[in-house]
Design a protein around this nucleic acid. Structure first.
Lengths: 340, 340
DNA sequence: ACGGGGCATCGAACCGGTTCGACCAAGGAG
DNA sequence: CTCCTTGGTCGAACCGGTTCGATGCCCCGT
């Protein structure tokens, strides 16, 4: 069951078995065959802990994903799936860590106890102590998202500012003048979540450029909050004819609120935002949105991390993605702007 | 940085440090304090690989989740989240493995290379070679779902048969007589997925009991497939007035198909099924459904696994859950049964 | 005064790999 | 015919913990 047993049965030394397996030194064809045969017979696989101890690499990466509020969003699911898949292609295992902050128990385990060779961080904040901490330590990591000071870092990010602005311009081009912005929960905005801040910025600036009348809202990550938020929107300004949202989980609730207020989408009211395509397509009418390329981002994050692990001295790299808006069926020309 | 360094600085032997940390032998208060002080100063944490090598436990569990088709469903997300959280409470890390079958590369790594102490299996099939394989090996594992021969196994399952039957009875009580069943993709049904089979069984038997006219369909795990499937339903039998579904991901598409066919839910058409509440609430009208208690199932699976790890000789245990149907807004009395 | 028991500590072996230096035999160059 | 390389193999040390057996010491009972 261990390398000594294999060596004994093959009539060679333990080091020879090791070299036969790793190929780091030449081994004659005869002995290699003999060893391989014994290994196949016994179904031997080298112990991962022992190997990790000996050569200092665990062949595992950590995926740090703090829960957004108290449950996970669909986008996180997409990230997790693509990261696991990409990592598997490089023969890396993925360890999940539900860590919130730098002082977090599970975060410490991953790093301090050397369970992983590198980490991928999700749900980045503009001032993120995890990112700062890892940078100080020189610990190999890649962020999905970027902080306020992204220079010299490894990350793959989304141009939330540009994307939100694109949504505004799309609506302004259609003649909308009174537009609402539905953001992630207030708690996340206050915590400094990148997407919430940059999205809000992009929205506000573009709206000013186009001289739109706007109101901005925070909204819980669930359908009930979405519905309640939409009621607030129409209560505050019944003449609102369109909204932009970053809040995937609230989308169904927003639609329900519109239906109950008797606003038909897209005839009376236009909806757009930044949402992964697979969720944009579950609502009716399908959402015109900037599709978050979650699968691609996860894959690229792994590519970057592996590159960093293989070349410790490589200089920092990043990818900033700005997917175009996919026209579906939830936006249309502005109507009268009052009750239908 | 390692235990020898701590020992040196504290002026004791390595074993004393180890005992001070583990408490497995008495250590005087003086030395314990001294050791603790050095540890705090240096921020020392014991190396996980070394520890795992020495005592044969990695303190990690594997979560084996084959992708359903080519992407992940919302329910899988809920399982992953709850498993990670529950495992963290027991100080276990979670390793994700996208393994499909027994011969899978990543599955072999997890088990063969002893990366984990135990495993939680998702997406169980009636005849599941992974479950059989692990049972043969005596490897500690817990299944989320149950095979055709669940006796003597460790699992937490859902009574899909009973749940689907409950949906049928609910619809029959409302006077529906022509009902469709929308299952998971055909590929999964053919592969023997438990939920697809048991759900179909429960539906069929209950429908026979109540003398309903039924048709059953398989449907891809996405909105477009749902829409297309609903068109097939109404094409095959326009007099259909209700459907039962297990397919969470297709739900949005089913609703869209109904809207485009001019069927109002629940006035002209009732929809129900087995779906996690958080997804049932995103559609409008909200889905009357048997709520899959994904969070509870994940937690219980971890509880069971930890129990099994702590007491290797414990006799097998399981939980079979049968949540009641939550009445929301998507079902109503049968109407005329023809076009509105 | 002496023996025994418990406490605190130490040294060494071990877990299962990897890797370095040494060794020997065979082959090629001078 | 040497000498030097190179290919193939081995033994030993090492990675960083845990654990067992031994030892020294102090205190107590008799």
């Amino acid at each position: 069951m261990n390398i000594g047993e294999i060596a004994r049965r093959a009539g060679v030394s333990r080091s020879t078995v090791s070299y036969a397996l790793s190929g780091k030194r030449p081994v004659s064809d005869d002995t290699r065959r003999k060893i391989q045969q014994v290994i196949d017979e016994l179904g031997y696989r080298p112990n991962a802990s022992a190997r990790a101890l000996a050569n200092g690499r665990t062949n595992a990466i950590g995926l740090v994903f703090p829960p957004a509020g108290n449950h996970y969003t669909g986008m996180q699911l997409d990230f997790i799936g693509s990261v696991v898949e990409a990592a598997a292609a490089y023969d890396y295992d993925v360890l999940l860590s539900p860590s919130g902050v730098d002082s977090d128990h599970s975060f410490q385990r991953l790093l301090g106890e050397r369970r992983v060779d590198g980490a991928i961080l999700m749900e980045i904040r503009l001032e993120d102590d995890r990112v700062a901490h890892l940078a100080d330590l020189g610990f190999p990591s890649v962020a999905i998202g970027r902080t306020a000071h992204p220079e010299g870092g490894w990350w793959v990010g989304l141009d939330h500012t540009g994307l939100a602005a694109a949504c505004v311009h799309h609506l302004a081009d259609l003649g909308h003048t009174r537009v609402a912005f539905v953001n992630r929960p207030e708690q996340l905005l206050r915590a400094g979540y990148e997407s919430a801040h940059r999205g809000l910025d992009g929205f506000t600036k573009a709206a000013a450029e186009r001289s739109l009348t706007v109101r901005t809202y925070c909204c819980g990550d669930d359908a009930a909050s979405g519905q309640e938020c939409l009621e607030r929107v129409l209560h505050d300004d019944p003449a609102t004819t369109a909204l932009v949202t970053l809040n995937e989980a609230a989308l169904g609730g927003l639609y329900r609120g519109l239906a109950q207020a008797g606003r038909h989408v897209p005839r009376d009211f236009s909806v757009t935002g930044v949402v992964a395509s697979r969720w944009a397509e579950t609502v009716t009418p399908q959402l015109t949105a900037a599709d978050v390329p979650a699968a691609e981002m996860g894959r690229r994050a792994v590519d970057l991390l592996v590159e960093r692990l293989d070349h410790p001295e490589a200089s920092p790299r990043h990818h900033l993605l700005a997917p175009p808006i996919s026209l579906r069926a939830s936006t249309g020309p502005a109507g009268t702007g009052t009750t239908p």
